[in-house]
Amino acid sequence: MSADRISGIFFLLLGLAMYFVVNPAYIETVEGGSLNPKTVPNIISVIIALCGGLLVVKPTHHEVGDLRNIARTGFYSLLLIAGLYAMSRFGFEYVAPVLAFAIMWFIGERRPFWLAFGAVGMPALIWFLVTQALGRALP
């Protein structure tokens, strides 16, 4: 199946889900006035669904490229999500060096100088800039 068919189906379903499920549940009903809060989101949802449907019927030749790259991006995204979760529990000071080291290691960096600079030097520099120079709090 072509990439456009997949994304077309996705947007078709997204538009329908917004129109029939999400918008009614998460937008309050209002009496009177000139522009109801639901009007614009509903119109947009219909447009998304229609265009998604059209794309399924008439896809372009777009290709998504190497699937391995997408999988790798998925992995890095998970790494960032994990890092963010850890940051919310332990704070930037402790998580940032680990996260930076992990990212650099997985990209393929093996030179000790750059690894040390990225995992210790950069977080320290950011720490100094934010807490000492600017007087703000780190996340």
Binding site: L80, L84, M87, S88, F92, A96, L99, A100, I103, M104, I107, G108, E109, R111, W114, F117, G118, A119, M122, P123, I126, V130, R136, L138, P139
Partner: peptide
């Protein structure tokens, strides 16, 4: 500089910058 350091540094800076500009880690999420 090597891409490895640029990407990791840029990610950390974006996390810190966005958390300062918005309401903390919620904005980062």
């Amino acid at each position: 500089a090597p891409e490895s350091i640029i990407f990791s540094a840029a990610l950390l800076l974006c996390i810190v910058g966005v958390s300062m500009a918005t309401s903390g880690l919620f904005g980062v999420a």
